[in-house]
Simulated scan of single mutants.
Amino acid sequence: MDLIAQEPEHYLQADDVIEATHPAVLALAAELRAAHPAETDYARAAFEWVRDKVAHSFDAQDSRVTVTASEVLREGVGLCYAKAHLLTALLRAEGIPAGLCYQRLADPATGGHALHGLVALHLDGAWYRQDPRGNKPGVDAQFSLEQERLAWPVSSAAGEVDYPTVHVTPDATVVEALSSTDDVLDLYRRGLPSALPGSAA
């Protein structure tokens, strides 16, 4: 799909959630870069580290709440949004423009829909979406600069939506939902945010 993004330089800044200048984030970024000096190799290594080393909260049945990049790194767990925050921070820490993307997917936990968080990164003059949520039976997300290999295909018949915008900062409703609970599994059961504000879905 065609992504809608600002100029790449807008996607390099740090903020209170995408903590690209946090010492722990910088330390991991430097470690990964030392082993993978080429841009694409580093991006792949950062993606695989977050996908494989940080557990998805629901898969692990871990109730801890993580929002910021440093929290995700410290606790080693997070929902898709939180994992996307860490990957975005790791990419920005090494000068690779990266932002947040979202999908609206059917949510079997509630019977409705839920936002799913992704990362888009800018390499070789183009934007590429990646899904670091973590693999499991039936989910095989891979780093790719060719055909997208995300966790789930989107079905418009099921009311699912691919939102094309690459966000510089995390969606405020996502951050608010994560910040307003002390049990992320309870939030998951009650229902994650179901659509981006102002969208038709």
Rank of each mutant, 00 (worst) to 15 (best):
M1Q: 12
H10F: 14
Y11D: 09
I18M: 13
E19D: 04
T21C: 09
L26P: 00
A29P: 00
L32Y: 07
H36T: 04
Y42G: 01
Y42H: 03
A43I: 01
R44T: 06
R44H: 12
A45D: 01
E48Q: 12
W49D: 05
V54Q: 04
A55S: 15
H56N: 14
D62A: 10
S63H: 13
T66R: 08
A69D: 03
S70Y: 07
E71A: 11
R74T: 12
R74L: 10
V77H: 03
G78R: 08
G78T: 03
L79I: 15
Y81Q: 14
A82V: 06
A84Y: 04
L87N: 02
T88F: 01
C101F: 02
Q103V: 03
Q103N: 10
P108T: 06
H116N: 07
L123R: 11
G125D: 09
G125L: 07
Q130T: 15
N135C: 12
F143S: 01
F143Q: 04
E148N: 09
E148D: 14
A151S: 13
A158M: 14
Y163I: 10
T165P: 00
V168Y: 07
A172F: 08
E176T: 15
L178E: 06
D183C: 11
V184C: 13
R189I: 11
L192G: 04
L196W: 09
G198E: 07
